[in-house]
Write a protein that binds this DNA or RNA. Structure first.
Lengths: 201, 201, 201, 201
DNA sequence: GATGAATGAGCGTTCATTCAT
DNA sequence: AATGAATGAACGCTCATTCAT
């Protein structure tokens, strides 16, 4: 009896709709009507499946985080240097995957994080998680090479910053970053910094 | 004869008002009323001195760019390595100067650049200018050390990306970047990458 | 042959749901979803058993009227003065009976009657019926005491007004009417007015 | 310099607009658009002069209260019985004065008081104030006639209830209360009740 | 009978912009 | 120059109602 639920699919559609619209216009201008249209639904239905626009954003964050985690997981089980390189690729190859709006919506999310405390917390949590995984890889390299791990966290944060900056420049400018150089250059910077760390006694 | 014009001061006030409000809320939520209040003026007067909210934003971009140029100029006339370090400081010390909202408003501007073509163009022009000055410094170092300058632009773009990422993480997260490590770590990464560039025959 | 109908019980549940929600929020804010929840049903089912929200209200009026009639019937067969006192109790004891929401929903109904012609008519019909029964009791007292019945209707209307006012002040204020004084005071006013009616020649 | 303010007049217009629309449709259905139209303004302007619809309601309450106070003041300085009669008239003659919507909006307000705590408090405060002035008049009569004032408050509350009930029946029914009998009948009930109070030793 | 998705009109409110003073 | 009223087009959200299952 009764009608089978389709909320999961609808919510998925709606979150993807937000991702798409947000990539083009940012969160504020991602109106419910625009999200609904992108999702092929009506505005009323969006509010049937989500209590508020804010709630959709929370779902999008989780989705983007999960997508990154899946990419990062591919770097596990390799040598220290390869693992670090893989984690960098997990971020910088974000746009080459399925959804073209993922990078742009992540960048827009970073702007919302400045203003909305709850978003800030969730965004910072993902950034922290990512930085910690970078730190783990950085330290593994340093240990394997007998170097001090004293600046491991700082270097990981620097790599995370570079990654976020690359994504941002990628969607907000044209020509500033030469095509196809991001990942390789960042690896050069990363290993250059690692090579500069002193040997332990 | 009428009263002497005070348009320049008023425009300055208004632009600073936008900077302040934008730093806290972003561009969309920076209402004319809020800008006016931050500037100590009335909403109507804002539109007397500026045709539109968009026009204020254009002025703010120019202001932020000019502020950066002034900081960057301080790096001129030094040794290649010191000049590069000085350019990095010109960006990362942005927040330590006069206005606390400069960094946050620049980050918010980066988000607007994704969406508004005209803003994108101006934002990209500043980013390009900055990247070129970085490239000039990077190449100077490489030339001075007899290294290939082939990847000069890519490295400069990487430094620019890292700078922007540091600024963004700084205003959008807490604890991801260890306090006070940004400039030193980025210089380590920069020189590490430069040291990795091959010697010319 | 299909399942046996349970429409009557369902309608009863729904009407009670409206009574409960209306007592707390009034008719406008008594959403179908809230009524359904109060009734332990789903929103869709409410519209299966009732064509519209308005229709539920019509049923509630009849229910409240019937409940009053039952209380009023208890006053029959007594002496004139006791009958009048019993009718007053039939109204003012409304809240002491089964449903705590009956009084509040009746008061809310009175507000709707101002606005909706159809509700107004039904509400006025109940009020008229009640006033007529009061008038009948008032006149019986007057006749028994050899007084003029000229102002019987006016006095009955005054008693009805006082009853409605007591109910309204009871749900809309605290402390205005001293606890437990309503019925006794109204009877004092009623008999005081009756005693003031002149003797017939 | 600058434009002279007209906020006071506009707010007055808007409050009267709410009174009028609320009298016809109740508070919930008194949309900002309807209020604006009744006031001869646009919807946007209503929110320029009032922060919210709720705030307009608060102003209306104060206005209605003030109007009642002015009427009640006319009863001062007379004999005890005349003062009591004057206070009853102050309420029941409400509709015969300037605004035909005053009574209906007061009744609608009473319905809102059941639901909205803040409105309830203000409504109850006015009702309390009015009941206290009735009690003062009632007690004056009783004292002047050497009767016990023990039930003064209860009688005053009963009169207040009757007043509110008359107003309510007046706007929600037709024919229940015979035209023109309200004030006289209530006075009969009031004095009848007073006459029934025992003499002090 | 019953469920829950779906619709669409309408709500209070916001806000850039215009204009009278 | 400056003020503050005025406009009108959104926006996020609510909700009675309809309909597919």
């Amino acid at each position: 009896m009764g009608r089978p639920t389709n909320t999961d699919e609808r919510r998925e559609q709606i979150v993807l709709g937000l991702q798409q619209v947000m990539a083009e216009r940012g969160y504020e201008k991602a109106t419910i009507a625009a999200i609904a249209e992108a999702a092929g639904l009506t505005a009323g239905l969006v509010h049937y499946h989500f209590g508020s626009k804010h709630e959709i954003l929370l779902c999008l964050i989780e989705r983007l985080a999960e997508s990154w985690r899946a990419r990062a997981a591919a770097a596990e089980g390799r040598s220290p240097r390869e693992r670090l390189a893989g984690l960098i690729d997990a971020w910088l190859a974000l746009g080459e995957g399925a959804s073209p709006g993922a990078v742009a919506s992540w960048v827009a999310l970073g702007a919302e994080a400045v203003q909305q405390p709850e978003i800030r917390q969730l965004y910072a949590a993902v950034a922290s998680e990512a930085t910690e995984s970078l730190e783990s890889a950085v330290s593994a390299v340093l240990r394997a090479e007998g170097r001090t791990t004293r600046h491991g966290r700082a270097i990981a944060a620097g790599l995370m910053a570079a990654v976020q900056g690359y994504l941002q420049l990628g969607v907000a400018t044209s020509g500033v970053v030469p095509r196809g150089t991001a990942a390789a250059t960042l690896k050069t910077m990363a290993f250059g910094a690692l090579d500069a760390q002193g040997r332990r006694a």
